[in-house]
Design a protein around this nucleic acid. Sequence first.
DNA 1: TGAAATGTTGGGGCG
DNA 2: ACGCCCCAACATTTC
Length: 476
Amino acid sequence: MATSVVIHWFRQDLRLQDNPALTAAAAAGTVVPVYILDDEAAGAWRPGAASRWWLHHALLALNEALDGRLHVFKGCAEQIIPQLGQQQGAAAVFWNRCYEPWRTEGDRRLKQQLAQLGIGAHSFNGSLLWEPWEILKQDKTPYQVFTPYYRACLAALTPHPTAAPPVADNFARQVACHGEVSVPELELLPSHPWHEKLAGHWQPGEAGAHRRLAEFLAQGLYGYAEGRDFPARDQVSRLSAHLHFGELSPRVLWRQVHRLRDRAPVDVDAYLRELVWREFCYYQLYHVPRLPEQPLRREFAGFPFRNDREGLKRWQRGLTGYPLVDAGMRELWQTGFMHNRVRMVAASFLVKNQLVSWRQGADWFLDCLVDADLASNSAGWQWVAGCGLDAAPYFRVFNPVTQGRKFDPGGDYVRRYVPELAALPDNYLHAPWTAPESVLAAANIRLGVDYPEPIVDVKTSRERALKAYQVVRRGL
DNA sequence: TGAAATGTTGGGGCG
DNA sequence: ACGCCCCAACATTTC
């Protein structure tokens, strides 16, 4: 009996291990593995520059793991998949679910199309530990607050068997697909070679994901609960981009971390809680699809943000005059990443001290982060701006100086990314404008020339933000 | 997963 | 010895 041909459509699941849809596809027939870059369907949410760099390398790695059998396309997935299915005489198409609104709508239409063509369509959960519709309150409505959601998730945790990885024989050989291109022909790399510096910091692809996981398990988890707040230390997982592209199964990650619970003094629960935060972001995006565009708290719709192009540009370039903020923004530009503690401070600074819309900050992050993720990024910015579910209260304004002294006391982080301040002594490092002339001169710094004066005063800008938020609050 | 303003307490200097 | 003031050092409240 001739085995049937099936298609596995890779999206945010660029891995072979513990890939439920891929495993099911391999069990159903000979697999034609496919990736489609569909910028038009994604619209404004198509991958940003840093993500495209990552994707380029992740696809090369995946293709290599598949012995060069990955079929890559550029164009409209809703056309390409049905055409391909017919050309190959495929019995079914398999994929792992995504949760971005443009994805869920497209997938629904595609399922209808395939049904009409008599081609099966099977979707699986390869990206989340809990499907968003599985975790609901007693009254069957979604949770609004993280902690009860978190508890409900833990209560609902069921052990999943790891999906068996496919073997080489599962994949179709020497299949020609009309219209396919090579990975480089996707033109994911920008013409300007700024991305070359990213290569020193990351190893996209499944092998890189597991290498990083092994490092984290061996070192980062020890003292994670406290250490994760200090950006100069290497005590965060740095797995976010691998998770975003699905190079690492969240179930495998959960299990590997959880195994360490009864051994060694590692902060297993603190890290797993962060993984549940990731789930909560997807949960919000699924239940409230306007998350990326509209404030979840309606009263914020008319918030008086300033249209400050110059201020936005200075924030983007790391030239606000606040060393911790500037270090974070430069880390982002140089490495495609920003430490989470600093993300909160830099975001708070833009939204509250500069009074610029969280949408503008979110757009910049989506373009610059290698881990850019619509769910996490949108939920994170809404959290900081105070307009999201279970968000930081509007009056919680981070002071970048205080935060710097608290979480970068030795100044290693600031000195790494703001080298022009490197010679300043610790006690002035986070507030250079307070240093006496003689100290500045000794450190070879002319304020306003070598490093900017503060773009706003934290005290008065904080008061301005509180006033603006009070107006919103009155409008309830 | 704040910060600043305001309130309280307690030890020490001093008349 | 005592009360008074000062002011850290916390604690509480407010935004």
